[in-house]
Design a protein around this nucleic acid. Structure first.
Lengths: 191, 191
DNA sequence: TCAAAAGTGTGATCCGCGTCACACTTTTTC
DNA sequence: GAAAAAGTGTGACGCGGATCACACTTTTGA
């Protein structure tokens, strides 16, 4: 729970009393590699704050192809937010790629925290603001950049993920085939 | 200003007194077709709530090609948020496509409103939540759908924009060339 | 520890879509 | 209301990247 407090205080300082109020809304959970947090069709009860480990969230099309919406490591929040906020069934999958620990928060908890503690509403707004800007940047990148450029942008933005995540998933994130991505950087030095 | 109050109260009810506090943070502005609200390199002082009219926001690459990040009509908020929040220079352009009226809010105003009035922080969080989910859906669409499907999805999501916006801009939004988009729906009936 | 699973590189082929080009229509603008 | 600007359809052509196929390497897990 120390990590949670630190995570919140990166945005707003809170008192011991306030943190005592916040704590019980979160539940701790260990997750093993390959384990699913969410599958298409599930009821999405929780969003997750990742304390350690790595996850991928992806959309699965009718042919069984994966399209990665997001990777998430330490201090990232993740959920099928469409389903979570609107209380619909999940359309995305979330899978653990590296043994992990997470904190779970349900929608009622999020809304109660926001309503009761102005600071927490501020915290969530700040997180959303960053997330919104990041998604917008990704859209621009998908529209305007070549696969080559997108790969480089990804490397600059997430150098640590670049190392520990298999290239095939990075390809799925960038919207290129595995093979094309492979050719991109094998040609890079020579040209 | 009536519209503003109604817009806010779609999310949270507020008292007359509260609205009197909110009002002065907004300034009214008329905008004519072809007029820019923001250009690449500008300092982004304001975000805009659109009362009437239509805008497009786009990224312009080094070859002069446009990539549309967002359209916005009545009751939409719009700004180069990356620049606005981080107080950097704009990388996007915002152009009026149909004579418009907007309300302008600067970052200081947004933050003051959020800090002083919990309800307003809640309002902004609610807006961001919706925006976040919408952007995520668009990313999935860009990754997983064919141009054909994306065109249909766009039509379902924004039927009114579909009518009043020239197809060439819709193509730029979908990430296809104008010509390809044109061929998509000329072939649609026959196959 | 060793078999199975997952990840990766690379050749061959194919096709969707971008690009260029041009004619035609519609809308703007003064 | 005429000239200019903007939007649109469609043909020809070529390329970037998807797909399929296979060999090889690395990681995983009973």
């Amino acid at each position: 729970m120390d990590k949670l407090r630190k995570h919140i205080e990166d945005v707003v300082p809170i008192s011991d009393g306030e943190f005592d109020f916040v704590k019980p809304f979160f539940t701790y959970k260990r997750v093993k590699k390959h384990q699913y947090l969410t599958q298409e069709g599930d009821t999405v009860t929780f969003e997750y704050l990742i304390l350690s480990g790595v996850f991928r969230m992806f959309y699965l099309d009718s042919e069984g192809k994966e399209y990665i919406v997001q990777f998430a490591g330490e201090n990232w929040w993740m959920a099928d937010y469409q389903a979570y906020f609107k209380e619909k069934k999940a359309t995305l999958h979330i899978v653990c790629m590296e043994d992990a620990e997470v904190l779970c928060l349900n929608l009622h908890g999020r809304e109660t925290l926001s309503a009761e503690l102005h600071k927490m509403e501020h915290f969530f707004r700040a997180k959303l603001t960053n997330g919104y800007v990041a998604l917008q940047r990704r859209i621009i990148s998908l529209l305007a950049s070549t696969p080559q450029q997108r790969y480089e942008e990804f490397g600059q933005l997430y150098p640590h993920l670049m190392q520990k995540i298999p290239k095939k998933y990075i390809a799925e994130y960038l919207g290129v085939s595995r093979e094309t991505l492979s050719r991109l950087y094998s040609n890079r030095v020579t040209q």
